[in-house]
Design a protein around this nucleic acid. Structure first.
Length: 847
RNA sequence: GCCCCGGUGGUGGAAUGGUAGACGCGGCGGACUCAAAAUCCGUUGCCGCAAGGCGUGGGGGUUCAAGUCCCUCCCGGGGCACCA
């Protein structure tokens, strides 16, 4: 029998699917809808193996749901603006547009080779004029609604990418992409007012039941809500000072007030105080890197000013400048309560300030309780706190807040760690911000009928700074209001804006407004979104924000874009290193007896840990040669086998060969099957072998369905192996049972190996396509056998097993258990004190 | 430091509190073959000839019964971080 020719078959079926337009999704249908989406790729030019894993998972869900009778939307597009195109343009002298579209063309072909059931009719790239045209409209809608503002602010400047970054895009003080140490600069920039929805974005997380807890937690921490009290100190220089605290209950434990080095009052004082100026400079030397902060000593500077305690005018607290107080959080000023805050405690010990314990844990003696080197932050009752004494922490917080509010110097407030989203980028390959700057009229939005603001045809990279800024012909324009001379905003939007609403655009990519509401309301939310964990905060938070903002503007009905989220693990590979310590590519080596050697020289190579594939470690395996050798189904099957989808998977050649063997095995089972009845023939009477094969078939249908519902692809795969094994062992079964088993095997494996399934289906005599065939149903009567094996334990240790009819009477089970040889031996004549019978499962005898 | 998530054979990993190790990879033995590839069959947690004993990171606990629940410690991974 001929081996399965994957290459030929895959080409054939892909053409067949396309000819029948099977995956082009109708806008309307009586079927329930299901929107399946994988995070769209950046068009780098080649798909990598991580894409293969991501898109395979999405495709399995899409095909599975389609077979189950859903109207499935499964689109694909390109996140096509961004720096790599600019770098290529600069290095190779090509246009970023041509470079990007060529890459898209190449990657589209590669994706098509994978046999993904995508609706290519909805494809678009974010650099398409049509897409960014709609995005510019959206920006103006946001602007009109007051969701966008311009502000002069300290910004994060990435000196390598030559652009500003949003807070989320600075990781450990470095640019998320370039890794360069970020500098602070003052610039006038556009912001999305994401903090406006901070509370909603936080509360919305609770409704996202089908998101990983981990991602919800990360977003919660990122939003960083803290409830507290903002209140005023009267200072000895006559000024007022606002501070924020989450612990107003500890106000009587205050022993100092501290200002950030960047606080306006500090700056003002420094103008007349050289030593303070020197101190501020000293503070700035401490970097933002994690390690530095950890080692950094608490430093303070006494301003000589004092602050009056809000509950006692005669109580004066020193006002210090302290290096650990951040201007970016709260008001940039705090009151220090050393007994109940670790940082304040370290500071107080260093500058010999008082440490007064005002919260006493319930198990401690209020008279004797003292704080040593560790601040006490737990619950307890107030002490040394006048009118608060005896109250709990919560009661005291309320009491202080109420009194200060009544006195008109305090207010309960909520603070968020989340900052507004800075979206201006000084880059030429992005969506131009549709704004005009006029000397007379100020900032004027481009009228919608003058959109799109198109990027220039040619971008000249031989200039300093932003090429759009240097392109005077592009930049100079007339003011829409006064018709006088004006200039365009030369910044482009952060590319994260492009990916914040593309999933909505897919619901009708040809709409002449950003959103076709009917289409969006039909399809949204995305039922299953799949992508990498690296987007847990940035992309997913921005997309949630956009959806919420669009929802406020009545463009979409939903507030949350992604009902279900799945974050898949990375693809890893072993690393290899030669004797000189250079990384060695897997292509250069061969393995024997668990050791690795250079293919050329035979010299041994050291095998290192399996790590995320990366160019620098040379442990990259490209998908195309694998598809060329084994076909798409094999690599798809590998990606789903063995490892749970959320974990990192290790690529191994041996594993890939194993998958290839299975492809051939399924093919052989289907093509070598003899004397099968024609499709649709009623079942024959079954003998024992046939019956047990039928049971295996129906168990597999039930189990695979259940596993796929829960995205447990690896377990679904295992069930299919089990069914194939049962097939192999049952060639004595009657033809109708064998046909039933084979058809189930083919249909159940079709979402994972769609081409192979079509070939097998055809060879089983069908003229329809699997892609048009309904998901098989199981007969509950056949998923369980009527004979059960029951284990017998004596004192919790397994001593034997008995085989009985299902649902046998407990008395009979007990009797059979006590009569079992191993059990008798273990009891050694002793009487059973107690016998626990768990029906159809286990018997435990307590002796 | 704080917060998550993990730790199961040689290996990737299964396991509603109820027979630990499904299924895959690898190994071993065999069949077919002049031979090899491919394929098929058997076997494979550890110790032991066997009977049996021991086994899910360590220690303790709850339970008739614990990989699973509770406490505690160790190790690995991830996130956050002078956030007041």
């Amino acid at each position: 029998m001929a081996r399965y020719n994957a290459k030929e078959a895959e080409r054939h079926w892909q053409a067949e699917w396309e000819a029948r337009a099977l995956f082009a999704t109708p806008g309307h249908s009586d079927k329930p809808k299901c929107y399946v989406l994988e995070m769209f790729p950046y068009p780098s030019g080649r798909i990598h193996i991580g894409h293969v894993r991501n898109y395979t998972m999405g495709d399995v869900i899409a095909r599975f749901r389609r077979a189950q009778g859903y109207n499935v939307l499964h689109p694909m597009g390109w996140d096509a603006f961004g720096l790599p195109a600019e770098n290529a343009a600069r290095d190779k002298g090509v246009s970023p547009r041509d470079w990007t579209y060529e890459n898209i063309a190449a990657m589209r072909e590669q994706l098509k080779m994978m046999g993904l059931s995508l609706d290519w009719s909805r494809e678009f790239a974010t650099c398409d004029v049509e897409y960014y045209h709609q995005q510019q409209k959206l920006f103006l809608d946001f602007y009109q609604a007051g969701f966008v503002y311009r502000s002069e602010a300290d910004v994060n400047w990435d000196p390598v990418d030559m652009t500003v970054l949003a807070n989320e895009q600075v990781i450990d003080g470095r640019g998320w992409r370039s890794g360069a140490i970020v500098e602070r600069r003052k610039l006038s920039q556009w912001f999305f007012k994401i903090t406006q929805f901070a509370d909603e974005l936080l509360a919305g997380l609770d409704s996202l039941d089908n998101w990983p807890d981990k991602v919800r937690l990360m977003q919660k921490n990122w939003i960083g809500k803290s409830e507290g009290l903002r209140f005023q100190f009267a200072l000895s220089n006559g000024e007022k000072l606002d501070v924020f605290t989450t612990r107003p209950d500890t106000l009587f434990g205050a022993s100092f007030v501290a200002l950030s080095p960047d606080h306006p009052l500090t700056q003002e004082l420094a103008r007349k105080d050289e030593k303070l100026e020197a101190f501020i400079a000293e503070c700035r030397k401490t970097g933002t890197a994690e390690a530095e902060i950890e080692k950094a000593e608490k430093l303070g500077y006494d301003t000589g000013i004092t602050a009056a305690h809000p509950f006692d005018d005669s109580w004066h607290l020193k006002v210090m400048v302290a290096n650990f107080v951040l201007m970016g959080y709260g008001t940039g000023a705090i009151f220090g309560c050393p007994a109940h805050d670790q940082r304040d405690l370290e500071f107080a010990r260093k500058y010999a300030l008082k440490v007064i314990a005002v919260v006493v844990p319930s198990d401690a003696d209020p008279e004797a309780f003292e704080v040593g080197t560790e601040a006490y932050t737990g619950p307890g009752r107030l002490a040394n706190s006048r009118f608060l004494n005896g109250l709990t922490v919560e009661e005291a917080k309320t009491e202080v807040a109420m009194r200060l509010e009544a006195a008109g110097i305090g207010q309960r407030t909520v603070h968020y760690r989340l900052r507004d989203w800075l979206v201006s980028r000084q880059r030429p390959w992005g969506c131009p911000i549709p704004m005009i700057h006029c000397e007379k009229c100020g900032v004027v939005p481009v009228p919608k009928d003058q959109l799109p603001v198109k990027l220039p045809e040619a971008i000249n990279f031989n200039v300093k700074g932003n090429p759009l800024d240097a392109d005077t012909a592009w930049k100079n324009t007339t003011c829409p209001t006064c018709k006088g001379r004006a200039v365009r905003d030369t910044d482009t939007l952060d590319t994260f804006a492009d990916s914040s609403w593309y999933f909505t655009r897919f619901t009708d990519p040809a709409a002449d407004a950003p959103v076709n509401k009917a289409a969006a309301d039909y399809w949204l939310p995305v039922d299953q979104y799949i992508g990498g964990i690296e987007h847990a905060i940035l992309h997913l938070l921005y997309a949630r924000y956009f959806t919420r903002a669009m929802s406020k503007l009545g463009m979409v009905k939903v507030a949350e874009p992604f009902a279900g989220l799945f974050t898949q693990g990375m693809v890893c590979h072993e690393t290899y290193m030669d004797a000189e310590g250079n990384w060695v590519s897997p292509d250069e080596i061969e393995k024997r007896d668990g050791k690795a050697f250079f293919r050329d020289t035979g010299q041994e190579v050291k095998i290192g840990a399996s790590e995320k594939m990366s160019k620098s470690k040379k442990n990259v395996v490209a998908p195309e040669p694998i598809i060329a050798e084994y076909g798409a189904d094999t690599i798809r099957w590998f990606m789903l086998s063995d490892t749970p989808p959320e974990r990192d998977i290790e690529w191994t050649d041996a594993g890939a060969e194993g998958c290839w063997r299975f492809v051939q095995r399924v093919w052989r089972l289907c093509t070598e099957a003899k004397d099968l009845p024609v499709p649709g023939t009623p079942a024959a009477a079954d003998d024992e072998t046939s019956k047990s094969l039928r049971q295996a078939t129906h168990k597999a249908i039930a189990a695979v369905t259940e596993h796929l519902e829960h995205l447990r692809f690896n377990s679904a795969v295992a069930q299919l192996y089990t069914l194939a094994n049962a097939m192999g062992a049952a060639d004595q079964a009657n033809p109708s049972a064998r046909r039933e088993a084979l058809e189930a095997l083919v249909l159940l494996s079709a979402p994972m190996m769609p081409h192979l399934a079509e070939s097998c289906w055809q060879s089983l005599g069908h003229t329809s396509l699997v892609a048009e065939t309904a998901w098989p149903k199981y007969d509950p009567a056949l998923t369980a056998s009527d004979i059960v094996t029951i284990a017998i334990q004596v004192n919790g240790k397994r001593r034997g097993e008995i085989t009985l009819a299902k649902n046998a009477d407990s008395k009979d089970v007990e009797a059979a258990a006590l009569a079992e040889e191993g059990v008798k031996r273990a009891l050694d004549g002793k009487a059973a004190k107690k016998v626990i019978v768990v029906p159809n499962r286990i018997v435990n005898i307590v002796a």
